[in-house]
Amino acid sequence: MKRKKILAEVQPGIGGEVVPHQDNSFLYTEPTTCTGLWLALEDATIINGCIWAIPGSQKNGLVRRMVRGEGGVSFDRPSPTYNQNDFVPIEVKAGSLVVIHGDLIHQSFENQSSKSRHAYSLHVVDTDGCKWAPDNW
């Protein structure tokens, strides 16, 4: 029992802010095929930094890409400004898998609570019938 208490005390505040983005921006294929898999190892709530998303935003296509060039890595256009009121929280219990369309605009806020929020994040792309962009970062 003491071990559980120590783990809970050691891990508060884990999880930094992730600014609004689309996964296809970073893992670009033609056609776009990136899918994010986010497995909550602990409950993810508004208090400890769950994912927030703009419902239906995946229907509007890719906003911008991160590309690799001679000068390094940069975005091909400026970051859009999003209305924070358009985002909704995706609170899930430990063991839940959140599947994220590559064009879905999503973010998370820094975990400033005394409770941890560990998760595994994995991104997959189709390996058949699509082309991996040579200028991906």
Rank of each mutant, 00 (worst) to 15 (best):
35 T>L: 03
31 P>D: 11
39 L>M: 10
39 L>A: 02
45 T>C: 02
51 I>T: 06
78 P>G: 03
60 N>D: 11
96 S>K: 01
76 D>V: 06
26 F>Y: 12
96 S>N: 05
49 G>Q: 07
71 G>Q: 13
37 L>T: 02
53 A>G: 11
66 M>A: 14
37 L>E: 00
32 T>C: 08
73 V>G: 07
36 G>E: 05
53 A>S: 05
71 G>F: 08
61 G>E: 02
88 V>S: 00
98 V>H: 05
99 V>S: 03
52 W>P: 00
82 Y>Q: 10
51 I>V: 11
85 N>C: 02
102 G>P: 11
51 I>A: 06
54 I>N: 07
82 Y>G: 02
66 M>Y: 12
93 K>M: 02
52 W>F: 12
37 L>S: 05
56 G>C: 07
30 E>D: 15
101 H>Q: 13
56 G>W: 13
90 I>A: 12
53 A>E: 07
46 I>G: 14
60 N>H: 12
31 P>S: 07
45 T>A: 01
102 G>T: 10
64 R>C: 04
28 Y>W: 15
34 C>T: 15
50 C>H: 05
55 P>Y: 07
45 T>V: 04
95 G>T: 09
63 V>S: 02
42 E>A: 13
92 V>R: 01
32 T>Q: 09
76 D>R: 10
85 N>M: 02
38 W>M: 03
95 G>R: 11
91 E>Y: 06
69 G>R: 14
44 A>F: 10
78 P>Y: 11
62 L>E: 15
46 I>W: 09
75 F>K: 02
103 D>Q: 11
65 R>D: 10
53 A>W: 02
68 R>H: 15
64 R>L: 06
81 T>D: 06
30 E>Y: 14
72 G>E: 03
54 I>H: 10
87 F>C: 03
103 D>P: 07
104 L>K: 13
36 G>K: 07
47 I>M: 11
67 V>G: 04
29 T>K: 08
39 L>W: 11
84 Q>P: 09
55 P>C: 06
68 R>V: 15
38 W>C: 01
82 Y>I: 04
92 V>F: 01
83 N>P: 01
79 S>M: 10
78 P>C: 10
37 L>H: 01
49 G>P: 09
89 P>A: 01
51 I>E: 05
78 P>M: 05
68 R>N: 11
47 I>R: 15
57 S>C: 06
54 I>Q: 09
96 S>M: 00
99 V>L: 01
65 R>I: 10
69 G>Y: 06
99 V>E: 03
79 S>H: 13
74 S>T: 08
37 L>P: 00
50 C>K: 00
98 V>R: 00
82 Y>A: 09
35 T>S: 02
59 K>M: 04
51 I>S: 04
104 L>V: 15
25 S>N: 03
74 S>W: 04
85 N>R: 10
80 P>W: 15
44 A>S: 07
102 G>R: 08
34 C>E: 12
99 V>T: 01
41 L>V: 07
58 Q>D: 05
66 M>E: 08
78 P>S: 08
33 T>L: 08
95 G>P: 01
30 E>H: 15
51 I>D: 06
66 M>N: 14
71 G>K: 13
70 E>H: 15
31 P>M: 06
92 V>M: 01
98 V>M: 00
91 E>Q: 09
98 V>N: 03
31 P>V: 09
77 R>S: 05
31 P>E: 10
62 L>H: 04
85 N>W: 10
84 Q>G: 10
39 L>D: 11
48 N>L: 03
61 G>Y: 08
95 G>N: 12
84 Q>W: 12
